[in-house]
Every structure is written in structure tokens, then in C-alpha cells.
Design a binder for these strands. Structure first.
Lengths: 377, 377
DNA sequence: ATAGTTTTGCATATTGCTTATCTTAAGTAG
DNA sequence: CTACTTAAGATAAGCAATATGCAAAACTAT
């Protein structure tokens, strides 16, 4: 799916349930002998282990194969504007150890990078007791030139585009490093973990900022220069327009993002600085906050409707801090989508909240690192 | 690119310039012997012929290989609301014979289909003098369930969804038949013919209706149920809202599509019924019409800006009847795109008019048929 | 004419995968 | 217990692609 060079059997088992040899043959399109031979190789290499046998269907029950989650570990890093999460994961992407680092993307990039690297190094050393770390993935809140493995342009990461982040981390930590945009990776993680059979999925992240990731035909859509999914600065219709942090007027971020809601709550006398605090106030049932979240969900819904019309996904997932509002956030989005899109596009559309929680970013990052695992060479 | 089952060498030569055996080996990743063997097979089958030798670079000059355009012919059908174009094409997609059929999609589908089939049959018989027809492609103004090869839902093609169009044509004409949405095929044709190295392209069709096709990572984006690119009914901001033919208020079609401009010109006393007549009045330099086209281009520009933000294409192409306004149409689109999108997404973006003219639809349809040509089995 | 360069064709051995057949293993249904 | 079913292992024959080496062909440069 994401990486064509990956050993197809290992890939299949990494991203799916345990399977019998017969299923594997059918899915990867190999003959029985070859599949059996490869399965044995993977088993001998410790990459996969035998799982529970399937129930018999009248004959000998099939053995099942699954990845050995303890064969290697991975490190996922999710870089936010004020915080980074660094997580040690096993091959099944189960978190083994978490570390949160307070950072500030406006600081000197070299210093922040050192904080992250030190954090990852500590986790890697701790990992040696169970399994060596096979790779690191890093999710960044910036457009990424994916083929080049570089930050495409500053955005909120001023000065970072000059750093060859991937190579610096690779030589420092002595492991393969992969990087991508954070929303893309959240989208990937949500799809792989919760919607494995969905080939067309749109993921909207509504947090401090607003962005989206798209999977079409099973592939993450990255765009020509890594700026795809930049929906935060799409123009919003109803006046009066608010000034956006990008300098323009009336971007949906300026009306519906976490920072905008915090601004509006402050103006109403609340002590509120970011999306997280918006959700805390929301959780208390504060009417002013509920009204703001409802309005926000409808604004996000207008853009969601456009995305549905253009991309025709099967599933629309809403994640990010504001998705903590749950059904309230979905209601406004559903309202606008069903109002504005043609029935053919919506009659089989599912709209849901992300289920990955705070860890979606590191999970996606780990997934990216994992996908690189059995590349040739 | 479009069809993974296609013989890679034939595919390469179909969609590119003549190439030497060495180039072919490198591009398709085959060894010298295998490539040579396959090239010989293709040559013996008459599918490719030797072209001019390349200039020598100090050694023996390389022979070049190109498709034999006269080996087979293809038929492309582009079905419009009031007219269908049926064109006989050779393998280089050069038009050999054109036929226009007056139809009405609101008529009995079986009768219209018979008109089209008879037309195609006549062209196929005429083709026998030069080469047999290897396949037929058909472009339809409706959402297509591409994997199933069926019309997904009525749209403007009332009653057609009950017909198994592909099989009816296949048995009637005794040739393989492929079908897709007309805008998708126009997008494909424009990209393959004029932007062969562009992997991320958005094609906006502004004609009687408004729609778009998208190529991302070199693949046509069809969506989950074939309704992708349905931008005509995206909501337009400025009031007052016009009633759209879909029954909703304020769709961009109702303000910017050919039928809406014709309606507005009629209201101003002009004799104007469709997009084509709008362009005729426009060509006379009529100020009222110029004003309407300018307004239309800016409305289309707002949606184009959203598409650029979401998909981050390298190239944005505008086609359809209204693109006959040329730079005037581009100006409004560029204005809105540069105004609304972030520089990173637009600094390397090209905005241009489609160069395929009226034949883009049949060319795309022929391309689809051609892509099926050397599928296995 | 001679040497050097690059393309092309041909022969051979090897690798990787497939197809096919037979046998053993481990369950269910009666 | 017997018959049937499905899974799985082992083995052999065959095919397609690959790497490799060598020779002929067709050009350039001197």
C-alpha cells in the first residue's frame, strides 16, 4: 500500500490480522510453495511467529501467522508547537514507553532538535533490554518534500528548513529515519488502524490549527510540493471576517481553529490560551464555549462538504484536540455535508471521530518507520 | 501509469517519444536480453516499428522504437447533453474520421444508444481499409462506477443507469469497451498529451456544467463511488443566491456555468441558449457578456483556489467551452488562486487553458481504450 | 587505415517462481 | 471407527527473467 518495496507477506501481516498460509497466498498472489518458503524464512528470521490456529471448517485447521511484535522496536516522534511526544513502540505499534518534551518551535532549531534526539536516544537505550530499535519516524507540523525528505518551507517551523533533519538524526541515532507531515501521518495511522479496508478516506485535524490528510485509492495524497491538505486557510463566507495568523482575512482557521476559539473565549472573559483549554472549558458544560464549538463545527463542515464533493471518500474522520467535543463536532459537520453534497456522494459516507487519541501522530510516525523496515538494500 | 497490467514497453512508447532499447531497459527496469526479446515480440506483432536512428555519441548509433500508429485503430465516443462526438483514431490518437450525432439525453436511452452504436459501427467498417478497430472508449457526463463499468447514478442521464452499457456495446460491436466520466477522460487526455511529466494536475471543465478531474501521483482520482470532482455544486458565497438546476441555492454552477451565463444573457435580452452561444456573443466583444465571463472566472477561481490548497497540483488546466475565453478566463482564476492560496502552493503552480479543443473527450476515451490494448488475457 | 566507443545479437548458466503430484497431518460428520 | 475435508510439506519438471561473456555491427576520432 504505502511502500511497494516492502516484502509483501510481511507487509500484509504488519497491517492486518493474523492470516493462514492460504490467505497469504491469495492476497500476495504467490504460489503455495513460494509463499510457504517465504513464510518459513520470515519465521526463521524471527519476524513472524505462529498465532492461534483458526477454527476448523471440516478439515485440518489452518495455522495462523502474525508479526512478532517483539522482534524489533520503533520510535515515533510527534512534534507539536509547544510539545513533542516521543514514543517507543513495538512492531505491533503498541506503545512501550512515552516521553513528553516541552519545546518551542520558535526557539533555535538546533537546540530543539538536540532535545528530541536526546529523548529518542534515551528511549533507544532503554529499548535494548527488549529489542533493538529498527527505525525512527518523525511527524512535523510543516509541509514536507517527501521524496527529498526535507522540510519544504518554514510555515510554523521558522529556520528548520535549513536543517537536514533526516540525516542529522540518522547519524546521531544510527538508525533509519523517515519523516512526513503530522496530519498526513495521523491520517495514515487512523486509516491503517481503524479503517483498514477503506481505500478513500479524508482525515480532518481540528486542533490549534486546521488541516487535512487524504487517502485516495489506498495512497496518501501528498501533492506536488508537500502542501496538500492545507485547508486551514480556505476562505470562509459569512462576514464579519477575522484576521488570520497567516495575515489574511476570513480563513476558516481564524473562525474555527483552536487558537481562534481560545481568542474568542478570552474576549468573553475566560482564562483560555489554547485548544486544550478550550476543551476543558467545554467539558464543564459552559454554554458560551458550546456555542463556539457548534459554530466551529459548522464552519469546518462547509470545508468538509467541499472535500466530500471533490474527493468522494467513503469515510470522513475528524481528529485533533477539538474532536474531543465528539458528537457535537460531528453534528455540525454532518449538517453541512448532508446539506451541501449530492446524495450519491453522501448516501454511503461515514462521518466519525478519530479513535487514536493523542497518540495518532506517533503511531503514524512509527508506521512510516515500520514501512521502511524490510525494504531491499 | 493508468493501467498497471499494460505491457510496460508498449505503454512507455505509447505515451512518450521514440526511445532506444537502452532507454527502454532503464525505464522499465528489465535486463538487456529480456527487453530486447520483448521489443522483438512487439515488432513482430506489428505493434511497434523502428524509427529514425539517434545521432551517434561516438559509437554505433542507437535505433529508436516507436508505436506503429497504423497497427490498429480506436474509437472514442464523447457523449454530451445534446450532441455526441464519435471519432476514429489511430494508435497515436490522431483523428482519422469524425462523426457528430445529435442526441438528447432525455430521450429513451435505448434509442440514443442505438444511434451511437450505429455511428461507431459505420466508422469501424470504414476503418477496415486501414486497420481493424482494437477497442472503444466512451466518455459519459455522469458518475461512473469504474471498477464495475457501470453508470453509478442518473445525474443528467435519466434511466441510463439501468442499462449495462458496456456489455451492450461490446456484444453489438464485438470489441472491448471501456467507459469513464467525461471530465476524468478530458483530464487524462490533457495530462498525457500536453503535460506528460506532470504527476499532479487538476483539470477544471467549465462548459454547460462545471466539473473537475484530478491526477495525483500520476493516477486519475476517481473516488469511492465515482462522484469525485463534483465541484459544480459547491456553495458560492456572495449573495444573492441563484437557484441551481440541482434544486439547491447558490451552487457555483448557478452563477458561473454556461447554462447560468446563457440564462443571464437571456434576461438581458440576448438570444442565447447554451455555453456555445455564450462564447459566440463573447467573441463579438459584447460588454455585457464580457462582464459575465469575468464574474464567472472569479467564481470558478474561488473553487480553483480550494482545489489548489487541498491537492497542491503542479498544473491547473481549464477546459470546456467557456475556456474559449482564454486569458480572460485565466485572469479571474489566477486572481483568486494567488489571492487565497499560500505562496508555497502557488509559487511553482502553472495555470493554463486546455489545448485539446473539442476533441479532448474523444481523445481521453481513445486513450482509455488504448490502455486496455495489451492487457493480459 | 587503426583504435576506441557504443549498440546489438547470441549462447550459457543461474535464479526465482509456478505447476503438478504425492504424502502426511489434523480436524469434522456420520 | 470410517469417510470426508482441508492444511501443509516434499519433490520434480518447466518457464521466464537475469547476469555474464563474447562477437559482430556501426559509428567517431586520429
Amino acid at each position: 500500500m504505502e511502500n511497494p518495496h516492502l516484502d509483501p507477506i510481511f507487509h500484509l501481516l504488519l497491517n492486518g490480522p493474523p492470516r493462514s498460509a492460504r490467505e497469504i497466498e491469495a492476497r500476495v498472489g504467490l504460489s503455495r510453495v513460494t509463499a510457504a518458503q517465504r513464510i518459513r524464512q520470515l519465521q526463521q528470521g524471527g519476524l513472524i511467529v505462529e498465532g492461534e490456529s483458526f477454527a476448523s471448517g471440516g478439515g485440518r485447521p489452518a495455522r495462523s501467522w502474525r508479526v512478532n511484535p517483539h522482534h524489533r522496536n520503533l520510535i515515533g516522534i510527534d512534534v507539536g508547537e509547544q510539545m513533542a511526544r516521543v514514543t517507543l513502540l513495538n512492531l505491533a505499534l503498541e506503545p512501550l514507553e512515552d516521553a513528553l518534551a516541552e519545546i518551542d518551535l520558535r526557539d533555535d532549531p538546533a537546540r530543539t532538535l538536540e532535545t528530541l534526539a536526546a529523548c529518542a536516544e534515551r528511549l533507544a537505550r532503554g529499548s535494548m533490554a527488549s529489542a533493538p530499535v529498527a527505525g525512527l519516524g518523525i511527524a512535523l507540523p510543516a509541509p514536507i518534500d517527501y521524496p527529498q525528505g526535507r522540510i519544504a518551507k518554514p510555515s510554523v517551523m521558522y529556520g528548520w528548513e535549513r536543517l537536514d533533519l533526516r540525516n542529522l538524526l540518522r547519524t546521531r541515532l544510527e538508525m533509519p529515519v523517515a519523516m512526513d507531515n503530522d496530519v498526513n501521518l495521523m491520517c495514515l495511522a487512523e486509516q491503517q488502524l481503524h479503517w483498514p479496508d477503506t481505500r478513500h478516506l479524508v482525515f480532518i485535524k481540528a486542533g490549534t490549527g486546521i488541516g487535512c490528510g487524504m487517502i485516495t485509492d489506498g495512497h496518501l495524497l501528498r501533492g506536488a510540493f508537500g502542501t496538500s491538505g492545507d485547508i486551514g486557510h480556505i476562505q470562509h463566507s459569512p462576514e464579519p471576517h477575522q484576521l488570520c495568523r497567516c495575515g489574511k482575512q476570513g480563513c476558516i482557521e481564524a473562525h474555527a481553529a483552536g487558537w481562534a476559539l481560545a481568542r474568542d473565549l478570552q474576549a468573553q472573559g475566560f482564562d483560555c490560551r489554547d485548544a486544550r483549554e478550550v476543551m476543558q472549558i467545554y467539558a464543564r458544560g459552559t454554554p458560551e464555549c458550546r456555542a463556539l464549538v457548534n459554530a466551529s463545527s459548522r464552519i469546518i463542515g462547509t470545508v468538509a462538504a467541499d472535500l466530500v464533493a471533490v474527493l468522494n471518500p467513503e469515510v470522513l474522520v475528524v481528529g485533533g484536540t477539538l474532536s474531543g467535543a465528539g458528537e457535537a463536532m460531528l453534528a455540525g459537520i454532518r449538517e453541512r455535508v448532508y446539506q451541501r453534497c449530492l446524495p450519491l456522494a453522501t448516501e454511503r459516507l461515514q462521518v466519525a471521530c478519530a479513535r487514536g487519541g493523542d497518540r495518532l501522530g506517533v503511531l503514524g510516525a512509527g508506521m512510516l518507520a515500520r514501512a521502511r523496515l524490510s525494504e531491499p538494500r
